[in-house]
C-alpha cells in the first residue's frame, strides 16, 4: 500500500516538475522498483500510442499485446543505457563519484510524463501530444539531473544531450547487432512481416485495392 501511495505521489510531483520528488526517490527504500515500474509502464503506454504500425502490419490480438510488452521491455533497456551514458559522462568528464543508482532513479522518474504516451493514439492530436510529452519528460530529467548531481541546469542539459548522443552513436556502431537483434525479436513476436515505412504501406494498400478492382471486374 505504501508503495502504491509513494508511486502516485512521486509521479504527481515529477509531473509538476517539483525538485523534491528527485530527492525523495533517492531516499525511498523501494525507489528503484518504483522507477522501473514507471519506465516499464511508460514504455507500454507509448508503444500503445504508436501501435498503428502493429495494426498496419496486421498483427493478431494476442501477438499485439505481446509486441507491446516486448516494446516496453526494450524501452526499459534503452532507458538503462541512457542513464548509464549520463553516469559515465559525469564520472569521466567531471570526476564525479555519484553511484549509478542515483542517476538511474533520477532519469527514470523523469519518464513520468511518458506514462500518458497512450494519448498518442488519438487521431490528429496524437502526434503533437507525443511531442509535448517528450519535451515535458526531457525537462523533468534535466531538472532531476541538476538536483541529484548538484550541477547547474545548463550542465544538466549538456549531460542529458551528450548522454542521448552517446546512446544513439552506440546503437549505430557497437550496438548495431543489438539493434538488429531487437528488430528480429519484434518480427518474431509479431508473427508477421512488419511494415517499416510509408512506401511499403502505400504499396500494400494499393495492391489490396487492385485486387478488389480485379475481383469486381471479373465478377461482372
Amino acid at each position: 500500500m505504501e508503495t502504491v501511495v509513494s508511486f502516485w505521489q512521486l509521479v504527481l510531483e515529477a509531473l509538476l516538475l517539483e525538485g523534491s520528488a528527485f530527492i525523495d526517490i533517492q531516499n525511498l527504500g523501494r525507489g528503484s522498483r518504483i522507477v522501473l515500474l514507471i519506465v516499464f509502464l511508460a514504455g507500454f503506454s507509448e508503444a500503445l500510442g504508436q501501435s498503428v504500425v502493429l495494426f498496419v502490419s496486421r498483427v493478431k490480438p494476442r501477438r499485439f499485446v505481446a509486441s507491446l510488452l516486448l516494446s516496453a521491455g526494450l524501452y526499459a533497456f534503452s532507458y538503462g543505457f541512457w542513464a548509464f551514458s549520463i553516469w559515465l559522462l559525469d564520472r569521466l568528464l567531471f570526476d564525479s563519484a555519484q553511484p549509478f543508482a542515483v542517476v538511474a532513479r533520477t532519469v527514470g522518474l523523469g519518464y513520468a510524463p511518458r506514462l500518458f504516451g497512450f494519448l498518442g493514439f488519438m487521431p490528429y492530436f496524437g502526434g503533437p501530444v507525443l511531442l509535448v510529452l517528450s519535451l515535458w519528460s526531457l525537462l523533468a530529467i534535466v531538472i532531476g539531473v541538476s538536483i541529484s548531481l548538484k550541477v547547474s541546469l545548463w550542465q544538466a542539459v549538456l549531460y542529458s544531450a551528450l548522454g542521448w548522443l552517446v546512446l544513439q552513436i552506440s546503437l549505430r556502431t557497437v550496438g548495431y547487432p543489438l539493434l538488429k537483434l531487437t528488430q528480429l525479436l519484434r518480427q518474431r513476436v509479431a508473427g508477421v512481416p512488419m511494415v517499416s515505412n510509408k512506401q511499403e504501406l502505400e504499396q500494400l494498400l494499393e495492391l489490396s485495392l487492385s485486387e478488389v478492382s480485379n475481383n469486381e471486374e471479373t465478377s461482372e
Binding site: V52, L54, F55, V56, R58, V59, K60, P61, F118, L119, F121, M122, P123, F125
Partner: peptide, 18 residues
C-alpha cells in the same frame, strides 16, 4: 479524450482483420 482514443479502432481493426 476517450472518444478520440476509440475512434481509429474501427478502421484499424478492420484493416488488421480483427
Amino acid at each position: 479524450t476517450i472518444a478520440l482514443l476509440l475512434s481509429p479502432l474501427e478502421t484499424l481493426g478492420w484493416w488488421a482483420g480483427w
